[in-house]
Design a protein around this nucleic acid. Structure first.
Lengths: 150, 150
DNA sequence: GAAGATTGACTGCTCAATCTTC
DNA sequence: GAAGATTGAGCAGTCAATCTTC
């Protein structure tokens, strides 16, 4: 049992702002997407993930690992996306317990239409507020925080 | 109408990690608090905010502004916290539409008991992964992102 | 019995509508 | 009519239990 040092004031400040960023930044960007008629960010992440793989797509447990969503949560999210027509299920030949999920044509279309709006929001809320060097540092600091976290 | 430049790769990477940090880091820390028998982070924030002001406390709309929660959401959160015995309501003498919220003795106690656990989790998930300079930079970059947002 | 995935019951969030007081 | 705050109805997240296939 190593005894970690108590967090410094700078660490606590960084944490507090991370908590606040979740509440403010992420929800603002999400609200902008929504007001443009698009679904939540989570849907985008699923679509993007599936757009990167070849047929027959991915199985729920693979999505779970990539996106770090919980299984029971993912199960209902995928249901909704299938019902909305953005994803298609196909049975898995080698393992009858599972199935594959792939983008439908309209899912691929949604991804294409969302990106410019999403991109613009990222540019406005993040890009315009940081220098390139600051953006680099922010990305790398967050990357270090995520290391070793599941 | 200024036309913002499209976000650079570094900006997009920083954003993607921010989204991921929400899903992984924050929920990990929250889960640790929970498994220690404590309520969600949101409750902590309310308690902390109220611990900083003198009697008679704050009104819901003030909490809304400070914590950036939505009114209808806050209304039910406060209900739960009052019901749990951590907060007390008192009628507002000058405006009969509103009331004040203040910490109860057990709310103050909860705050005191939560902090060491929370602090330890912050140290382990954030402090131990960054140098002091990196923590400074992270805090200041997130601070810039939050400027002008709501 | 373990892994992949889903479901039921419950709790909490969201939107729009509402109520009261200013 | 606007501001402060709450509520009803519906949707999404959470936990534990379940079902099927391995």
């Amino acid at each position: 049992m190593t005894e970690p040092a108590p967090p410094t004031a700078a660490v606590i400040r960084a944490w507090a702002r991370l908590v606040k960023a979740r509440r403010v930044l992420l929800s603002t960007v999400e609200a902008e997407l929504k007001s443009a008629g698009f679904p939540p960010l989570e849907w985008y992440d699923v679509l993007l993930e599936l757009s990167r793989v070849a047929a027959p797509g991915l199985r729920p447990s693979e999505l779970e690992t990539h996106l770090l969503l919980e299984q029971y949560n993912l199960s209902r999210l995928l249901d909704r996306m299938v019902k909305a027509g953005y994803l298609e299920r196909s049975p898995s030949p080698e393992d009858a317990r599972g199935h594959y999920l792939a983008l439908s044509a309209s899912g691929r279309d949604l991804l294409t239409r969302m990106w410019p709006v999403y991109r613009e929001a990222i540019g406005r809320h993040v890009g315009s507020k940081l220098t390139e060097a600051e953006a680099q540092q922010l990305g790398s600091a967050l990357g270090k925080l995520l290391e070793g976290e599941s």
